[in-house]
Amino acid sequence: MAATLSPPRLLPSGDSAVTVEFSRTIDDIANQRVLALDKALAASPIKGIAETVPTYRSLLVHYDPGLIGFDALGDELLALASQPLRPATKARRWRVPVAYGGEHGIDLEDVAKTLGTTPDDIVARHSGGDYKVAMIGFTPGWSYLSGLDKFLHMSRRQSPRLLTPAGTISIGGVQAGIQCLAAPSGWHLLGRTPVRTYQLHRNPTFLTEPGDRVTFFAIDHKTFEEMDRAAEAGEIVAEQVDA
């Protein structure tokens, strides 16, 4: 297997960061390699690296050029990235409650209409999926998920909404997402979760990590209100199980 892995591209992101790019497109193998390199760097840190930011297809490595230069760091990163992928180790799995449709998922009916099916079928397909947190970005806790049912792939809205609610569960293109804070979005809103992927003064502040597995389960709107109050008080409300 190792021989089939092409080396990543090292793209300078200024003088204090380098983008280690495994693919230009969304690609599960590339994402696995991103997370594997991230894990390898956490296990055996390279002096001078300040922090790493995994994304779908690349790992952004922030470093201090006073401690290590671009060429020396690049050599070490390429050596680590060329190691064969190990079989996936046990990942955490989160079961995330979602109140679908109605005021919490204002696009559910339209998505069903566009895809020529019923809202129940959309909910069944979305909550039946097995997802992985491919990256977290844009705003705190915004978890981008890979593993969306192909049937649900659809282009984003023509005009993004300027504000979508905290906890929005949505789909856009080939991706699914858990949004934490209220933010603009061009994705289709299927529901809302009471789970806070980011909550100040809670331990942990951030719930999800890149590489975590995620499944969804439907809850009614009354349960949403109860869980939302519990979550506001600092409870995690998502169920954690070993994958």
Binding site: S13, G14, A17, R24, T25, I26, T55, S58, L60, H62
Partner: peptide, 11 residues
């Protein structure tokens, strides 16, 4: 459109 990747100060 590119697939989202990381940004830095000054990108």
């Amino acid at each position: 459109n590119i697939v989202s990747d990381g940004t830095v100060n000054g990108s």
